[in-house]
Design a binder for these strands. Structure first.
Length: 431
DNA sequence: TCTGGGGTCCTAGGACCC
DNA sequence: TCTGGGGTCCTAGGACCC
């Protein structure tokens, strides 16, 4: 644990909403919200949408009703999420950020840590160049937080977003302790990275209500009442680096694919279709990291928001005979699990699968008794399947019972075109 | 009518063993 | 009536993140 080099957290402002505004300039300066799968919840809000009191994660039908009551419904544009667009824009942003430091951790779709060390200029100046470059090359606004630790960089980013006086870049690493403490004093402890609502409540009972309180809390007291994780967080708030920059993204330990349905389903046949589709998608992701799964979990449930007698949720883990990345073997196991879980009656609202016990295919000990030629044939077939789906679009080639347009498919009433990843949906400039 | 999806890590407690 | 102690492994559940 050392006093670290300055680290920056670069975070796109209202990322999904900003992506939409880049390609639909008439949305700039307007309240825009982006909705989750099935147009269910609000997952991104433009600044103007936040100002209208729309909450993150709020069910859209509730927000809409409230806004209608206030005569504000017309002021908001709601869009279905367009992940193809956001993922592509994210890749562009991350590549640009990589030019500013050889040490980069891509933390999420819209956030990246950068180590700012050995620069010929003050980090704050680099921060401003990052903002200007990303804006000019992608149209997306970002804020930059800088600190001696990742946790302080996160908090600095929060400050930069909150107070326009920072002009989008807040560097805590250059401030003395007194100035840092003055800035942390008004920040609720729940804003600190790693402290959620539950923990904030418990800390409140101990008299720890702000980021400053947590910074000053004795380690022993924290360990007594919470976890070693929180103790690390408190040290990070004091400028003692406990969290390394993770420049290599590790393989996933589990791969999940689950969806709420656009319309509830009751029949085993339809659930089988859904589970087949989800397993195929998860297997694709598994092969993309050269992995194999030794088990698969299947889950089905009725709506979590209805408390009637028919409420039903069940899951089951099915071990595989041998670790595999073959869609056919995974689907067979998932279907076996589903058959054990299924009971007629409930209106199923959601289903999913999780690939578990993952390992690298290349590191597996060969099974002396297995037919290795079957293994080779499977790999060739799966590689071909993935290649075709990459070239012609996801779902071009599927197992026989994964149908293309099932009744339970998601609702997406308001999706914008996939401007950057589909030739037939390119933006058109009218001259 | 209408309530997301995909991850990680830690901990408590049970099973099992000597 | 009284029923060890400690280690390891696994799993389920909780909390957190975006």
């Amino acid at each position: 644990m050392t006093a670290g080099m300055p680290v920056a957290l670069v975070d796109c402002n209202s990322f999904y909403a900003s992506c939409e505004q880049v390609f639909q300039p008439r949305l700039q300066g307007r309240a825009v919200v982006v909705l989750s799968n099935n147009d269910g919840c609000v997952v991104a809000r433009s600044r103007e949408a936040k100002a209208l009191g729309i909450k993150m994660g709020e069910p859209w039908f509730q927000a809409r009703h409230r806004l209608q009551g206030q005569g504000q419904a017309e002021a908001v544009t709601a869009l279905s999420s367009n992940y193809a667009l956001y993922a592509d824009m994210s890749n562009r942003v991350m590549r640009i950020l990589g030019r500013f430091s050889p040490r980069q951790e891509v933390y999420s779709i819209d956030e990246s840590f950068l180590e700012l060390d050995g620069l010929p200029e003050p980090p704050e100046v680099t921060g401003q160049r990052i903002r200007a470059t990303v804006l000019r090359w992608t149209g997306l606004p970002v804020c930059v937080g800088i600190g001696p630790t990742k946790t302080l960089a996160k908090l600095a980013n929060h400050l930069a977003k909150q107070d326009p006086a920072w002009a989008g870049v807040c560097d805590l690493a250059v401030l003395d302790a007194g100035e840092v403490e003055r800035l942390l004093a008004p920040i609720p402890v729940a804003e600190v990275w790693g402290v959620g609502q539950r923990l904030a409540q418990r800390l409140g009972a101990l008299g720890i209500e702000t980021a400053l309180d947590l910074r000053r809390a004795p380690s022993k007291r924290i360990r007594q009442h919470a976890s070693v994780m929180l103790e690390r967080t408190a040290l990070e708030l004091r400028g003692i680096a406990c969290l390394d920059l993770e420049t290599l993204s590790p393989d996933k330990q589990q791969i999940r694919c689950s969806r709420s349905f656009g319309a509830t389903v009751s029949s085993l046949a339809e659930l089988t279709e859904a589970i087949t589709t989800f397993t195929s998608r998860a297997a694709e992701k598994l092969r993309a990291q050269q992995g194999e799964a030794a088990a698969i979990a299947v889950e089905i449930r009725s709506s979590a928001f209805r408390r009637d007698a028919a409420a039903y949720a069940a899951s089951r883990v099915v071990p595989l005979a041998a670790p595999t990345a073959d869609t056919r073997a995974l689907v067979a196991a998932a279907r076996a699990g589903l058959n054990r879980l299924y009971k007629p009656g409930p209106a199923y609202a959601k289903a999913g699968v999780i690939l578990l016990d993952l390992s690298r295919a290349a590191e597996r000990q060969p099974d002396l008794f297995a037919d290795s030629s079957a293994d080779d044939r499977s790999q060739v077939l799966m590689a071909t399947l993935d290649q075709i789906n990459r070239r012609f679009g996801r779902g071009s080639l599927t197992l026989a019972n994964a149908r293309p347009a099932p009744r339970w498919r998601r609702r997406e009433q308001f999706r914008s075109p996939r401007y950057t990843t589909r030739l037939d949906e390119l933006p058109v400039a009218h001259c």
